[in-house]
């Protein structure tokens, strides 16, 4: 197996661009969904459930929820893109096969796909921020710092998902990853409720999850609460991204060059 470090170059751009051009063709329906879905969540859960919940960590539930929704959406979007869509390009459409017959390498494809999935996270999060801002659920312009953060978080989740895709023989395989990794992370990273009431072991366990660290950064930026240990959270997200990228390169080189 080839364990050498990924060779990073600007050759990821045509890979990213190809996906972007396909996305642009299907822009209409996807953008409608991107706006309507968060609106429904914020209205139904934020106000519907919020009435019963009242305040959470000293803020209205809808404000608390908006930042959780941003992070969960970034994770889901990037993961979905790097599992199902990437697998389609790898196995069914042989898009990667075409790229590998041109002067592109596996590492270029992995980096391009990872950054594209990060971009998709950004595309899904921006409307949520707009809707939340329109509903008066964000504190101030510091919220805009969320955008670069989501690009980083999305790319990191994408890198992890690409490692799973490297093993997939069919779409069914992804159910394992969603059930065993993504869903627990979705529920236990402080996205929809704080973990204070959970057993200590769960609280400690949650500290390992990348989504927890995304929430710890995004929530203060959106609500105006003080940022705690931002460098630590950034480092964890970056580490997951870098390790995921390295592993995805090794695994996909092995698969595609077999």
């Amino acid at each position: 197996m080839n364990h050498s470090l990924p060779i990073l170059s600007l050759r990821w751009i045509p890979v990213w661009r190809r996906n972007f051009l396909v996305w642009r063709k299907l822009l209409g329906p996807s953008m409608v969904g991107n706006f309507i879905e968060p609106l429904l969540y914020l209205l139904a859960l934020g106000f519907g459930l919020g009435v019963f919940v009242g305040e959470m960590q000293g803020m209205p539930y809808s404000v608390f929820l908006a930042s959780g929704l941003v992070c969960a959406s970034a994770m889901n979007t990037a993961t979905f893109e790097s599992l199902f869509s990437a697998y389609t390009r790898m196995a069914h459409q042989q898009t990667w096969g075409g790229m590998l017959a041109a002067p592109l390498m596996v590492d270029d494809i992995v980096l391009g796909e990872m950054l594209w999935s990060g971009t998709k996270s950004l595309i899904s999060v921006a409307p949520i921020l707009a809707v939340a801002a329109a509903m008066g659920l964000v504190h101030d312009a510091n919220t805009l710092w969320v955008l670069p953060l989501i690009l980083l978080a999305g790319a990191s989740f994408a890198a992890l998902a690409l490692c799973v895709t490297a093993f997939a023989r069919s779409y069914d395989f992804f159910v394992y990853y969603f059930t065993l990794v993504i869903t627990p992370m979705f529920l236990l990273s402080g996205t929809f409720f704080p973990l204070d009431a959970m057993p200590k072991a769960v609280q400690w366990g949650a500290q390992v999850l990348p989504l927890t660290h995304a929430v710890e950064l995004v929530r203060p930026l959106m609500t105006g609460a003080p940022l705690k240990a931002p460098l630590l959270h950034l480092a964890v997200l970056t580490l997951y991204g870098a390790a995921g990228l390295y592993l995805a390169c090794i695994l996909l080189r092995r698969r595609l060059k077999a």
Binding site: V22, L26, Q93, Q94, G97, G98, A101, P103
Partner: peptide, 16 residues
């Protein structure tokens, strides 16, 4: 590969 053209066995044109 920059100087080579490939016609693969399986069609991999971009359907989109």
């Amino acid at each position: 590969r920059a100087r080579v053209g490939v016609v693969p066995q399986q069609d991999n044109l971009d359907p989109d």
